[in-house]
Write a protein that binds this DNA or RNA. Structure first.
Lengths: 205, 205
DNA sequence: ACAACAATGTTGACATTGACTACTCTCGGG
DNA sequence: CCCGAGAGTAGTCAATGTCAACATTGTTGT
């Protein structure tokens, strides 16, 4: 409750961070088109032009938001995979990866939409890099599986891409309302199972 | 080149259709955030408030655009599948389906983005229905395959959903610049092949 | 034929927004 | 100590979506 006598210091201190926080709240609450720079400034209690010192552009703010999203997503994915104790249990790890992605994407629907829709424009390499780092993990999983002979050969990145795309598509459909949230778990299960069946070496003997 | 003396009739005649056309051109040329109702009105040569008679809302215009997109996509998919003469050649038909989707989605990147991002809000069932009709075709394919014993059992809709999601994800990644267009074909191939391998009956003998 | 009436366009207005410029304030290093 | 750069402020502008009041046209019942 900001008292009228309370005088806030002229310099906010860490406006940039707080802008990002407020932006994410607004994103979650009202969706992306209602996210307004002036609104954020009002929420925080600074002048309407203050954000400009930290983000040249509305787009720049959104890009930063997307980048931070990818970083956090990457961390969540990594954590989920490593939570499976048995390093050799590829199915479990794959499943954990996919589940973690779906959870993140549904819990942060609007943010995920932003992340996937922000093309990396010339110069905005940061977003692309963060994205690559997040999904690159799955290539490693594939590679390990191939090394142990559990998976058929083939370009690990290509196969990883396909898996990633599947999970991406599932959440995209869920977030756009084409499928009900209740079906998500089953769908992920089907997708992972299906993939593993298709990727197993030809003649198990 | 509208002559100043040329008097256009007070009533445009089919403004709604022309608005949709202009909107799609603008979408393709400048992306979705730069699509402005006033701009469209200017392009067509009508007053800035005229569009309101046909679309209550900017969002309504976009929804109509998305719906029309789904209808056309559905037609393209159907045509692509039926172009494969042999009705029993499931792999070919699946591949045709996926390829057609990818082509449409890359040729109409912005429109596809719009189509996938527009949640069906309460009352806007038209978009959802058009979408369902478009992707529903794949369930039929699966069902036929299962009936002929070429595919393992399982809920056809669920499996169709997974395939659709994969293709959706691939194009989404392509359109957001995460993967280069040149890799698209290979990726689709990998995805379809992988799926078919995973879906084949357990013991081929 | 013609008078209502609905549909479609037009004009003018308003609040909101992103962006720009010119200005102040504050703090830390020479 | 001072002074310059970083950070915030106030004011302005053009553009936009939305709305209301009005004008014009097409249609329909009698």
């Amino acid at each position: 409750m900001p008292d009228s006598t309370e005088q806030r210091p002229y310099h906010h201190g860490n406006l940039r961070t707080e802008l990002l926080n407020a932006a994410e709240r607004s994103l979650r609450a009202h969706g992306i088109d209602k996210l307004s720079l002036r609104d954020l400034a009002r929420d925080i209690g600074v002048s309407h032009a203050a954000p400009r010192r930290h983000f040249a552009d509305r787009r720049a703010l959104l890009d930063a938001l997307a980048e931070s999203g990818f970083v956090r997503l990457g961390a969540r994915l990594r954590a989920a995979v490593e939570e499976i104790e048995d390093e050799e249990d590829l199915p479990a790890r794959l499943h954990a990866f996919a589940s973690a992605y779906v959870r993140f994407a549904t819990e942060n629907a609007a943010l995920t939409g932003l992340m996937n829709s922000s093309k990396h424009r010339p110069g905005a390499t940061a977003v692309a890099e963060a994205a690559a780092a997040a999904f690159g993990q799955i290539s490693d999983l594939i590679e390990e599986g191939q090394a142990r002979g559990e998976l058929e050969g083939g370009d690990p990145e290509e196969i990883g891409l396909v898996i990633y795309a599947t999970v991406l598509g599932i959440t995209s459909m869920a977030n756009s309302g084409m499928i009900e949230p209740g079906r998500l778990e089953g769908l992920v299960d089907t997708a992972v199972t299906q993939f593993l069946r298709g990727a197993r070496p030809a003649e198990p003997r």
